[in-house]
């Protein structure tokens, strides 16, 4: 039991050192950025139209 616990911990450490792929997260962040930028331009367009 005790040995298994130790090996689990070692595996956890190895997994933490591994670089995760964050490509999906990055893409989601970019999609959110695109949404924000488009809404800003939308509001700006509305402002210009109503001048």
């Amino acid at each position: 039991m005790a040995k298994e616990f130790i090996s689990d911990k070692k595996e956890q450490e190895i997994a933490q050192k591994k670089e995760y792929s964050l490509f999906g997260t990055f893409l989601s962040v970019l999609m959110l950025a695109l949404f924000l930028i488009l809404s800003w331009f939308g509001v700006y367009y509305l402002f210009i139209q109503r001048l």
Binding site: E19, Y20, L22, F23, T25, F26, V29, L30, A33
Partner: peptide, 8 residues
């Protein structure tokens, strides 16, 4: 920091 984290 992950490279992509730095980018965003």
């Amino acid at each position: 920091l992950h490279r992509l984290e730095k980018v965003w």
